[in-house]
């Protein structure tokens, strides 16, 4: 197989790997998959963590390993890169849509440095109401905060702007 074909096959396999914590998103949707290259006969894949201590990275690496082997790719190297730092701006439009459908409010707007106590306006992913309140800055994973909708009274996760 030529390099372009090999890259395409690797990319296809990598794009099918889902985030273990948010199982509706692929690592491509999330922007965690940064690069797929072919160097000589080896596939090189770069991934980047959402948060420094994200425990999902190890699982993602193992899942990538499995997916590449299943696609018949034997020679590959998976590296974790930190730069440029991951940002929620890399979430694909498709990823945002899937998040909301799953019941997680996607990040509100673009990232920027906020004032110390600036608050974000977050819409309820269930009923669409803007009448929501933050219950806790940190939710079930490092990348989420816990909110509650004042209109439908449902609690929900918010994927933090980062």
């Amino acid at each position: 197989m030529n390099a372009a074909g090999l890259r395409e096959r690797a990319l296809e396999a990598a794009a099918r790997v889902f985030d273990p914590e948010i199982p509706v998103l692929t690592i491509g949707d999330l922007g965690v998959l940064r690069d797929v290259r072919v160097v000589g006969d080896t596939v090189e894949i770069d991934i980047t963590p959402t948060y420094s201590g994200c425990p999902a990275m190890r699982v993602i690496e193992l899942d990538l390993d499995t997916a590449l082997r299943a696609a018949g790719i034997a020679k590959f190297r998976i590296s974790t890169v930190l730069s440029p730092a991951w940002t929620t701006d890399w979430l694909s439009p498709e990823g945002r849509r899937k998040l909301a459908e799953f019941g997680i409010a996607p990040p509100a707007g673009q990232t920027s440095r906020r004032a110390l106590f600036a608050s974000e306006s977050v819409r309820c992913p269930r009923c669409g109401s803007a009448e929501t309140e933050r219950l806790a800055e940190f939710g079930s994973t490092a990348c989420k905060a816990l909110y509650r909708c004042r209109s439908c009274a449902e609690p929900f996760d918010y994927f933090k702007c980062h």
């Binding site: 948060y51 201590g53 994200c54 425990p55 806790a136 940190f138 490092a142 816990l146």
Partner: peptide, 13 residues
């Protein structure tokens, strides 16, 4: 959850 998450960030760093 908050303290655990902050700990995780710091240990990741």
């Amino acid at each position: 959850l908050a303290l655990g998450n902050i700990a995780l960030d710091l240990i990741g760093e």
